[in-house]
Design a protein around this nucleic acid. Structure first.
Lengths: 230, 230
DNA sequence: TAAATTAGATAGTTACACTATCCATTCATG
DNA sequence: CATGAATGGATAGTGTAACTATCTAATTTA
């Protein structure tokens, strides 16, 4: 297929596809003439992946480029690929990491890792990301949620165990590697959004409030809320 | 105090503070003369909150403005404030929501909410965010992680229950309201980062791999890994 | 009194992610 | 085989977001 069809089937405008080709996010098609190239289903798949990473996962174009490069480079090294995927989801803005408070936060993360006996590469950027968040809690003087640090870690571990299991269950290596990336990036977006919904629900429930219009239960006529379903 | 001190104590450059003042993120100080204004500890606290939201939470300047506005406007309405905080963490880029596939994804979210008897406002933007993620999975033909949708939802619910409980335990209303915001935004960043660490650990564990250099356990000399140490 | 700081206004900068044109082919169609 | 649409490659332009810099007149501090 040529760009026109690639554009139509992916929903991505032709100039943007050209931009991705220039930027090396999308591999060039097979040239059949001076101004003709041929793209296949793999290109379409890759393009959809790129858009999902950028639009849903919030990954930058540079991050997406690194991810697809890693997909090619580490076709049979899941841990390397995971590292690349994790680098891609890092935020653009980062706080000042040169303060003593930040160091204290990082020490706390290292201690947490040791406590939980987590197998973590000591140079992993994710350690610093956790430290960023903890340092922010410190700086705001908000200790209440830090009491939940153990709960957060335990929850993350359980969830990650299920996710990794699901990925490793895949028989096809290529799909498995793609799922590493998709799981890291889109899994995060999915969970974050579900957490927002859960916050709404739990706030309403624990406050004893009733939402403006409760969703109809699928079957029974059970009272859904603690405040009485009027 | 004046800008200079505010800048020194917050680590935010003066031009940036002026920018935040112009943009309405930071309330103006008390004017004492034509070119003098006085800022207090509350300004410092607000400024730190803004930086944490932007640097760690990845919130936009516009989002931060809405959050602090909501903090002022809904000083005693946690659910309204929660809604504002949730709006602030929405991603900038969003996928095409006009396709049939996206509608199918959204229907699935609504079904999930009904199944779980979650109390959710039907117009909540978070529903669409979940649909964005699910639609991306559909589009990539990756069903494996969608099998975990129930696990994700259950995990989110448990975590949210603990978080909401921690927030509601706070006796001071003002701190409580701030914790709603901080919990939503920074809690997300914290959990995401911990999830990355947990992915590393679980990948290494389930693959039977040993990390390059294991962090030293705090006390005993127990074998840290499942792959046998030696 | 003189250097430094300040509030307020206006303008400039940087990074990012596209978009738009241009040109010389090449393809599709009658 | 004529002709209009589409293509690949190159170059340049656009829009937004988040600062950053400069200027001015007034005020503070040494």
């Amino acid at each position: 297929m040529r760009v026109g069809e690639l554009s139509r089937r992916s929903g991505v405008p032709i100039p943007t596809i050209k931009f991705y080709l220039r930027e090396g996010l999308l591999p060039p098609g097979v040239a059949t003439a001076a101004n003709q190239a041929d793209y296949d289903e793999e290109h379409l798949r890759r393009l959809k992946l790129i858009r999902a990473l950028i639009d849903v996962g919030g990954v930058t174009v540079a991050g997406a480029r690194e991810v697809v490069a890693a997909l090619g480079a580490h076709a049979n090294d899941p841990l390397e690929l995971l590292g690349a995927a994790q680098t891609a989801v890092e935020p653009r803005h980062r706080p000042d990491r040169s303060t003593a408070a930040w160091q204290a936060a990082r020490d706390r993360v290292v201690a947490l890792i040791a406590e939980r006996r987590w197998l973590i590469h000591p140079g992993s950027p994710a350690i610093d990301l956790v430290a960023d968040a903890i340092a922010a809690f410190y700086s705001l003087g908000v200790d209440e949620l830090l009491d939940l640090l153990g709960v957060y870690a335990e929850t993350a571990d359980r969830l990650a165990a299920d996710e990794v299991r699901a990925v490793l269950e895949l028989p096809d290596p290529a799909s498995r590697m793609e799922l590493v990336v998709v799981g890291t990036v889109l899994g995060e977006a999915l969970f974050n959004a579900l957490r927002l919904l859960a916050h709404q629900h739990e706030s309403a429930r624990q406050l004893g409030a009733v939402p403006p219009r409760a969703p109809r239960p699928p079957d029974g006529a059970e009272k859904p809320g603690p405040a009485g379903g009027g």
